[in-house]
């Protein structure tokens, strides 16, 4: 298992009021090559896509996406959830060549 060597941008506040809406934004650099395109040499360009995106908060999985070739390159994801406990927010990404990315940020709930 490798790691994704291309950059990722992750935006998540470090603190949120209890019961407040938190937004998580994510921009990933990835070719999202569909596997259907023909290259300049006339050969099919092999598929290379992100396959999975999982976000967990504390011990709950709050998003678990299976990704398909129809997504544009360098995809952007945004999701929001309610801050109800102080805990880690973990992002896990996988692509179809075994590259993975795991990133954890603490979210502190303030009164």
């Amino acid at each position: 298992m490798g790691t994704l060597s291309l950059p990722v941008r992750l935006a998540l506040p470090a603190e949120a009021p209890a019961g407040g809406v938190v937004s998580l934004r994510l921009l990933l650099q990835h070719p999202m090559e569909t596997g259907y395109r023909i290259g300049e040499d006339g050969a099919r360009i092999p598929r290379h896509i992100l396959t999975r995106l999982r976000v967990s908060y504390g011990d709950r999985v709050i998003a678990d996406l299976t990704l398909r070739p129809a997504i544009a390159a360098n995809p952007y994801f945004a999701l929001s959830f309610i801050a109800d406990e102080t805990g880690p927010v973990t992002l896990e990404v996988e692509d179809d060549r075994g590259a993975t990315l795991t990133e954890t940020r603490m979210l502190t709930v303030v009164p």
Binding site: L6, P7, V8, R9, R25, L27, Q29, Y76
Partner: peptide
Amino acid sequence: PFANPGLLWVDRGTA
């Protein structure tokens, strides 16, 4: 300032 995809290259350039 977050979602402009070109900023991925800015980040990488900084590194």
